[in-house]
């Protein structure tokens, strides 16, 4: 029997002041219908101090509201201190950890965990491999066509893992090791001759 569709809120990818970050999650706890909240820093290790002061308060508020809290790992890890941070998140015994980088997959091997959209899973064989590694749930990449999503779930019947996919396209479209000023948002001019922008999924 298919399990009912759940709503998962992915980790916040923006750089917000501590209070705004906290209040956002308090509102999610108090008012939103999401079932699962993935919490943590995925983008940049230099942002960790923004969420640290309120992190436990947010976890408690979400769990008190009946939300399942999962912890996210960094998506791009290059420094020693980032590897150490990754290890500390992966070591959490009380929450499911979402792997967004290969280092997290290594640290979580053999333990039940989830896989985030920043690990590339484009087909059934890759999904099955991660399931054998311990993945209980995989969030598929946002550019994956619907046909691929169908094929992956068809080739990996329930019992292997749950697959989820990003429904709202409020995602960064690229990862870079260098950020332009995150407060500035580059804009492009859509040409006057622009036609409908083709997307990878229907």
């Amino acid at each position: 029997m298919k399990s009912p569709l759940k709503l998962t809120l992915g980790p916040l990818l923006y750089l917000w002041p501590t209070e705004r970050w906290r209040d956002f999650y308090f509102a999610i706890a108090d008012q939103s219908p999401v079932d699962v909240v993935v919490l943590g820093e995925t983008v940049c290790s230099k942002r960790l101090h923004f969420m640290e002061p309120e992190f436990m308060a947010v976890v408690e508020r979400l769990e008190a509201a009946g939300k399942e809290v999962r912890l996210s790992t960094l998506a791009l890890v290059t420094l020693d201190r980032e590897s150490k941070y990754q290890r500390s998140v992966a070591g959490d015994e009380g929450h499911l950890v979402e792997a967004n980088d290969l280092s997290a997959l290594q640290m979580l091997k053999g333990r039940r965990h989830t896989v985030g959209p920043f690990v590339n899973v484009y087909n059934g064989p890759s999904a099955k491999l991660l399931a054998r590694n311990g993945a209980a749930s995989i969030c598929l990449p946002p550019e994956l066509p619907a046909a691929s999503v169908a094929e992956i779930t068809r080739s990996c019947p329930g019992g292997d893992f749950d697959s989820s996919r990003s429904a709202a396209y409020l995602l960064p479209s690229r990862r870079a090791a260098r950020m332009p000023d995150p407060r500035e948002r580059p804009r492009t001019i859509v040409s006057s001759s622009a036609r409908k922008i083709p997307t990878a999924f229907p």
Binding site: A75, L76, F118, N120, Y122, P141, P142, E143, L144, P145, L171, S173, R174, R175, A176, A177, I197, P198, T199, A200
Partner: peptide, 18 residues
């Protein structure tokens, strides 16, 4: 980060990965 960019996908529907 090579292998983790969807900019081309976003603009054209064609991506390096796929």
């Amino acid at each position: 980060a090579e292998g983790r960019c969807s900019l081309s996908s976003y603009a054209t529907g064609k991506s390096p990965n796929m």
